[in-house]
């Protein structure tokens, strides 16, 4: 068994520098790497490019990095619900690259799986396809989208073992599995870190080969963005 465990957040973030590109899992505030984000705020890592489906809310998630102006560029599919984001975007302090959600997932997965690029029909005939190569297959038009290149992927899983095998819960899975192994170094935080052998190999969602570092996360807030209930 190759042990991927690191004991401190400092060890988990070793090698993180200003100007790097990070992938961050999560959809809205669901399944985001809360511990890694807080540590990036504390370390005051600046000029970051973030590949993340959303940009958090004003006082949580990636909003914490935005508050301190640590992010240079956001690559996302949807960035609503964040007033500070809007202010920085309109004042051009922040660069924003909007990408269709399925394309974003595919560009991460392509990086993970060694494809330099993929063809997708999403965005054909729109401004998203401007300047990009297009090609017809079986009478339908597709856009060539290149795989992302990132330095670190920050992932949140529900359970993980020392070997880096991961299991996710509910819709907190989202972009997390697509980003594992898609960056030079994949750092995973889990709600429950267990010894190798404690997880059923049949139930693993992401094999440990895609993970370089895993650590036991703490103090999860797991904030709900839109609390909706029925009576």
């Amino acid at each position: 068994m190759i042990n991927k465990t690191v004991n401190t957040i400092q060890e988990a973030l070793k090698g993180v520098e200003d100007g790097m590109t990070f992938m961050l899992g999560g959809f809205g505030l669901c399944g985001i790497p809360e511990n890694a984000i807080k540590a990036l705020v504390q370390k005051n890592i600046r000029n970051i490019t973030c590949i993340s489906n959303n940009a958090g809310v004003d006082d949580f998630g990636l909003g914490l990095l935005l508050q301190k102006k640590q992010i240079k560029k956001m690559i996302s599919s949807y960035v609503g619900e964040n007033a500070e984001f809007e202010r920085q975007m309109l004042s051009e302090e922040l660069e924003v690259e909007l990408t269709p959600q399925g394309t974003l997932a595919a560009k991460c997965q392509a990086a993970q799986q060694g494809f330099p690029a993929i063809y997708t029909p999403a965005g054909y005939g729109t401004e998203v396809a401007m300047g990009k190569e297009t090609r017809e297959f079986d009478g339908k038009m597709y856009v060539l989208e290149e795989a992302y290149k990132a330095d670190f992927a920050f992932i949140k899983a529900w359970k993980g073992d020392e070997a880096g095998n991961l299991i996710f819960k509910g819709t907190a899975r989202n972009f997390n599995p697509c980003m594992c192994g898609a960056a030079k170094i994949t750092v995973v935080e889990v709600e429950e870190l267990v010894p190798a052998g404690a997880l059923d190999p049949n139930q693993i969602h992401v094999p440990g080969i895609f993970v370089q570092r895993i650590f036991q996360g703490k103090s999860y807030e797991k904030r709900i963005e839109q609390r909706t209930v029925k009576s």
Binding site: L29, G170, P177, T228
Partner: peptide
């Protein structure tokens, strides 16, 4: 009974019916 790990694309809390399944974003698209 709201679960922060169980939301829809509008970020609203939801439930899963019998026979439901969860998957990653690449599989979804």
């Amino acid at each position: 009974e709201e679960d922060a790990d169980l939301i829809n694309a509008g970020k609203q809390t939801i439930t899963a019916l019998p026979g439901a399944s969860f998957f990653d974003s690449a599989t979804s698209f």
